[in-house]
Write a protein that binds this DNA or RNA. Structure first.
Lengths: 347, 347
DNA sequence: TAAATTTATGAAACCGGTATAATTAATTAA
DNA sequence: TTAATTAATTATACCGGTTTCATAAATTTA
């Protein structure tokens, strides 16, 4: 029932190769035949079979997005999917489709990726850091395969990646606090091995020093991995040495800090200002609304897509990396008397 | 450089068709040749080209997941992605890959889907309701194409769908409240045209009547589409006729209701109990933690995948639908003195 | 007007597998 | 021993396009 290029050729009284050339806008075909073939195509509702086309062209026109996300990832790590949407948007605009692979515990990322490549099942790979390993890096490099890593691998490699600048985010947070008048600043970090938290701290410290308001060691508290942790740590911090402002390493910490400040009948930002990172829907509905240093993750996906497209078009291109710029979103937790925005339904 | 089936055949001294049969575990090949060919494959690191295989088999071994999600969808509508993860998990276990298409404003879902089908670019389609239309329904039906809709289309159709039972969810909420001793119950709904909110209300009303505690018209308030709306509506409700418990149509409403109750120096659940729907990460970190009637969306995706696989294997199967069962998650907003669970970092 | 170019079209190989039918070899039955 | 069956293997068409190269037709140049 489905009409193929042969039937079009037959009906139009030309050869298959002529039809193919018309399909590909070859300038070698006369205007007359082009029109004739086009008409027949229209008449027969002909659409080329993409499978056949891709096979003949030795291309899939497909990119694979690989992550290692657990159940509830969509709730706990929405960034991942927002990035994916950005990637999808860019690629689909250029005729590529995006396949999503979520690795299971049993699957080894190296094996999966090697299969994709040698079985010629995709033209490019977008990898979330949660799914990179040295083996992956080796496989990609030895095949000179177009790829981009979302996030920065924690080992030396020839991988192309795109990441946020957490250092810079930390520094932006400090500069903002300084500018609006808070000079005695504390930092509540996540787990000891949480690199994101650490980088944000480093950036904050550096900026503080440059501004002449350095953050003293007793104002740096680590290990807040749950809201309750953060609450307890904040309480202790306030009791021992109440700061004018607190930088929270992430939103979990911020929630705990909010609770703790409220527990002690202090107000935000009058007694203590709070700033955090990454804009979640609830950041803006907290009371007061939370000031954050944010990353436009969708745009990050867009950039990743652009870089990958470039690499697929020209595989000889050298390794490239890209760092997205953080954006400050000022709300009431660091500034008094600002109207809060209404929020649309999250469902 | 890549080794093909021909080279394997040549090296093993057999024909291409023999190698193909070995590849497909055909019982027609003798043990001896099978081993010989296997060895050569190993030696040459041969892996069949999936593109060629799929083309020859006239199958893509691919399913397409189609949605119409705006920017920030990952944050505002995480369910969508959690479902997708469930689908992906089921399908990848059966050798299918999942392609994600997010329709843009300019794209017509009917056209996109028709292209997918006639261009033979996918074996099955998972459609979020956000991307269905009558045209889509017609295209799928006239091609008898394997598909499943996530959510229930709001028009008569021959579509296969999987949905939640919002009616039942509403009834579960009422039964829970009744059971723990709240008999004067109010309902705060979303927008007038919000079908989900309406169905939950209907279920709640029916259950209440059956229990002999019917919800009076003045205890049903509609139109809470933002947190601020919900706050104002709740305030008015309490002022006019303070209930023992409030059912909030969704989490946005619940947040507003919480604010309002706190504003009036009332406590939850001692003065007023609150119950809502859908378990978001912040449901459990609210104060007190929010009792909700939840849907396991990941499992919903899993079920969708299973249904689609069945349909792809046997396209003659008749139209099927499936409704997932809601699950009550009891927390402190309806029950006094329950320890709250700790929350892991959301990032 | 013949030869050289240019333009338009088609024949056929190819992409790398699958699947059917034909062939050959090995067994079994007559 | 020969014919009939069965088992193992291969030749070949095919999936539906693309692409290279040969060829025919039209045009320009000598």
């Amino acid at each position: 029932m489905p009409v193929s290029i042969h039937e079009v050729a037959q009906e139009a009284g030309v050869s298959v190769s002529t039809v193919s050339k018309v399909l590909n806008h070859s300038p070698l075909i006369s205007e007359a035949t082009t029109q004739k073939v086009r008409n027949i195509m229209e008449q027969l509702h002909y659409r080329p079979n993409l499978r056949a086309q891709n096979f003949a062209r030795q291309k899939t026109h497909n990119v694979t997005f690989i992550a290692r996300a657990e159940k509830n990832a969509a709730f706990n790590n929405p960034h991942l999917f927002e990035i994916m949407c950005g990637v999808e948007n860019t690629l689909s605009g250029k005729g590529y489709s995006l396949t999503f692979i979520n690795l299971t515990k049993e699957q080894d990322e190296g094996t999966v990726i090697e299969s994709l490549i040698v079985q010629k099942n995709t033209d490019g790979i977008v990898l979330h850091v949660s799914a990179v390993s040295k083996k992956v890096s080796g496989v990609l490099a030895s095949n000179n395969f177009p790829h981009i890593v979302i996030g920065r691998p924690d080992f030396e490699s020839e991988l192309c990646w795109i990441d946020t600048n957490n250092n810079l985010s930390g520094s932006i947070a400090v500069k903002h606090l300084f500018q609006v008048g808070y000079h005695h600043i504390a930092y509540i970090g996540g787990g000891k091995d949480d690199l994101i938290s650490l980088h944000r701290l480093q950036g904050a410290q550096k900026a503080a020093e440059e501004l002449g308001i350095s953050i003293s060691p007793e104002d740096v508290r680590q290990g807040a991995v749950t809201i309750e942790n953060a609450r307890a740590i904040t309480e202790q911090l306030i009791r021992e040495d109440q700061p004018e402002a607190i930088i929270c390493a992430n939103n979990t910490v911020a929630l705990g800090t909010f609770h703790s400040i409220r527990d002690q009948a202090l107000t935000i930002p009058d007694n203590i200002a709070v700033i955090s990172f990454d804009d979640y829907p609830y950041s803006r509905i907290m009371e007061p609304a939370l000031t954050v240093v944010n990353i436009d993750v969708y745009d990050m996906g867009t950039q990743a897509g652009i870089m990958l497209l470039r690499k697929m078009k020209q595989p000889s291109l050298q390794v490239q990396s890209y760092t997205t710029l953080p954006v400050l979103i000022v709300r009431n937790s660091t500034i008094k008397n600002t109207a809060s925005e209404p929020m649309s339904t999250p469902i």
